[in-house]
Design a protein around this nucleic acid. Structure first.
Lengths: 259, 259
DNA sequence: CAATAATATGACGATGCGTCAAAAAATGTC
DNA sequence: GACATTTTTTGACGCATCGTCATATTATTG
């Protein structure tokens, strides 16, 4: 008899027993995910195999498959973890003390920095966006991911709406907030995908993308007349302020890494 | 003895014979690529196998491998073909009669329409940007792709430089042209990747992306003060003018398809 | 037309996925 | 605690697909 490990308990057995089991299961799932992440880090995606994960975790392949319906499902779970972390980051940024525009910009910086610190995440997200890969991910996991993406999107949309509410931004077209969010999201995501895949962007004449993204975001927001305009702002100072106020950790990590 | 099929003849044999062979080889390569494209279209990427291609082309697997070092190499070749077509399209757009900004916008529309007409291409490009896939593509093919990407980028950069030259755009920062091109490229590419992978963008509250991309491009260019600003322009009329002047074919195809 | 070189073929080994019958462990019953 | 029943784990297995390479076939040359 094959078993399905449900995340949410539906059994009516003793609560005590069930929750202990639940905890053990959750712990094992974390172990598997951590192990997969480690393999990914050390060997790369093409060397991530279910057998290897089984061996490294000291569980059998069947047990791994009790947690994840496929390798792709597992990678999607890794992405869900990452997006959850990003949601926390976005939430912090959205509550930043500055102007609405500064808060929105802060989210963008956070997104870039997160992916600089965790390049693997960008890889994984890229992979699970491929249709041929998606086919193999369970519906549950896809739904989970979609729901996380909705949450993260809503955070950004919320900031835009605050800007409209307080008059920093005029709502000239109908779904203003989602247009803007889609614009920057696609810009950041695209930059990530182009930079990922060690494509020689520099050979094409492009400089490191953090600065470029920052600049282009400012121009984009200027285009929407989101006040205060970048021409009335010391952009470099603002960038530095946001990073040191919100992302000191990330900057620290990146600096140490470059040593 | 294994053989390599070289695109450029290096043998000193009779020119006549060599070129006939060359032609036949090229023809076969086209057949293989066409067949792969057909399979991709009919069955999807996960059903594209070398055995299937061999069977469908009525050549043996070994022969297919004489043309392409791996399945991924073959898909990369398909992408190269697509980008070549796009280069032609971009060239046409760049020579459009309108203002510099209109020409630049036209390139953007062309890019979107091309991928609407050929959704497979976006898929393929997405796939070959994944590192784990790139590993399996031959260096030659990767170089070919890079060179094509350089050419296509240069077309867009050329238009920006013309705008600077004729005063439509002020060069306020150092590598102005590449910043702008990187901005829109990442925006379009990101939108493509997000839309690709039948992710329910609409569930996230986003409308169809052509209009959104058009709008966001205009805002972005406004932010850079690329004249004439969209506030001084009838944007809808401009969009329609460009599409009917340059992309009547593509629109035709899309309209027929939606019937 | 025979000798030699170039090309094509498909059987083969290797890898990795996902399954499932059987073994082991846990739980329940008296 | 012993036995029955359910749950969980295990890893050998079947299958698909990749890429190779010894052999067969075809083309070229003398």
């Amino acid at each position: 008899m094959q078993t399905q490990i449900a995340t949410a308990s539906t059994s009516s057995a003793s609560v005590k027993t069930s929750s202990r089991k639940q905890r053990e299961l959750a712990k094992r799932e974390t172990l598997i995910l951590d192990t997969a992440q480690r393999i990914l880090h050390e060997r790369g995606y093409s060397h991530l195999t279910m057998d290897r994960i089984a061996e490294a975790t000291e569980y059998s392949k069947g047990t791994i498959y009790n947690h994840f319906s496929s390798k792709e499902d597992l990678v999607c779970s890794l992405c869900c973890r990452s997006v959850s972390t990003l949601i926390d980051m976005f939430t912090r940024s959205a509550e930043y003390k500055g102007s609405s525009r500064e808060r929105f910009s802060a989210i963008g910086i956070g997104y870039t920095l997160y992916h600089q610190v965790h390049p693997m995440t960008a890889q994984n997200i890229q992979i699970i966006k491929v249709n041929a890969v998606r086919e193999k991910i369970s519906d549950e996991k896809l739904n989970e991911m979609e729901s996380l993406e909705q949450r993260i999107t809503q955070i950004a949309i919320g900031v835009v709406n605050e800007a409209i509410a307080c008059g920093d931004l005029a709502e000239e077209i109908n779904p203003m907030a989602s247009s803007i969010v889609f614009g920057v999201w696609s810009m950041y995501f695209g930059a990530l995908m182009l930079e990922r895949s060690d494509i020689p962007l520099e050979d094409l004449g492009f400089s490191p993308s953090i600065q470029l993204l920052w600049l282009n975001t400012q121009k984009f927001l200027d285009g929407y007349h989101w006040l205060p305009l970048s021409s009335d702002t010391d952009n470099e100072a603002l960038f530095n302020k946001i990073t040191s106020d919100l992302y000191a950790n990330e900057i620290e990590i990146l600096n140490n890494r470059n040593k």
